[in-house]
Design a binder for these strands. Structure first.
Length: 270
DNA sequence: AAATTCTCCTGAAGGC
DNA sequence: TGCCTTCAGGAGAATT
């Protein structure tokens, strides 16, 4: 399940293969993703040079002279760099062919998307209302604390809200709250500035560490070369219900919040 | 406005 | 062995 570190790992992996290359063709085998893949995507992008390979939140976009191809990996999406003769397998929905290689999107669950925007990426409907990047200097404890004021939702769903801050998915939310010693069920507005400071630091360090490890592979994530990420072995609470807490030995709990699993240590997290 | 629920989809895992 | 059920989950849309 790609979260920000996995998306960034993918972006870094594909970038050197694509930068300043011309798109020769695009093959769409499956239009039915989260939103329909634009019918005219190939005609818009063919012959255009890829000027940049960027990420905003969990979106990757290829910047061309006349617009951007926006890609989201959803739950089960992955990007691979393939040789031209490599046949497409099941769930390989889209090929973007560039010089002698193919950027291939595979997405068994079809929660991802491939879209086009002719305008400024930051004006796009899906991008414009997003909160700050977690690794950006704009994401500070003061910012998060001011946003949390009067909020009654849980601190976990608060940090997973992409209008507040992007890129904190289910895994890293649990991990960051553990590191910060905050109970996931606590109301967002009831967390002190001091503890919000710990949380912001925890979010940044957790995401940075995971990017260094090439992301977390739980089920189907692999890099553009098909390699798994190694952060999973560093997870402290996620997926560890029933196991002892690494810090205090108390059995780690699993609860459901907003129909998502949350893992935490009731002793360490208050 | 804020918070919660619904929805898309398929593979994996567990039960019998 | 194999069929059936349940679950996971990003995030926008719909609903309360």
């Amino acid at each position: 399940m790609p979260e920000l570190p996995e998306v960034e790992t993918s972006r870094r992996g594909i970038e050197p293969h694509l930068l300043n290359k011309t798109i020769n063709s695009i093959e769409i085998r499956q239009h039915k993703l989260r939103w329909p893949v634009p019918e005219n995507l190939a005609s818009l992008a063919t012959g255009k040079k890829i000027r940049d390979v960027c990420r905003r939140a969990k979106y990757i976009y290829l910047k061309l002279d006349n617009g951007c191809i926006i890609i989201h990996l959803g739950m089960s999406g992955s990007l691979r760099i393939c040789q031209k003769e490599m046949p497409a397998e099941k769930h390989d929905h889209i090929d973007i062919c560039v010089s002698n290689i193919i950027l291939r999107l595979r997405d068994p669950r079809k929660f991802g998307c491939v879209l086009w925007t002719a305008g400024d990426i930051n004006d796009h409907k899906l991008i414009r209302s997003l909160g700050p990047e977690p690794l950006d200097d704009l994401f500070t404890a003061e910012y998060l604390h001011s946003q949390a004021r009067k909020r009654t939702c849980s601190i976990k769903s608060f940090i997973m809200n992409s209008h507040i801050v992007v890129g904190v998915g289910n895994i890293y939310a649990s991990e960051s709250l553990f590191k910060a010693g905050i109970n996931p069920k606590r109301k967002a507005g009831k967390v002190s500035l001091t503890r919000i400071e710990k949380l912001v630091t925890a979010i940044k360090t957790t995401l940075r560490e995971s990017i260094e490890q090439g992301g977390t592979t739980l089920r189907d994530f692999t890099s553009e070369e098909g390699k798994p990420g190694y952060f999973a072995q560093r997870l402290l609470v996620y997926g560890r219900a029933g196991e002892p807490c690494a810090v205090c030995g108390t059995v780690i709990k699993r609860v459901t919040q907003q129909a998502r699993s949350t893992f935490y240590c009731a002793q360490c997290q208050r």
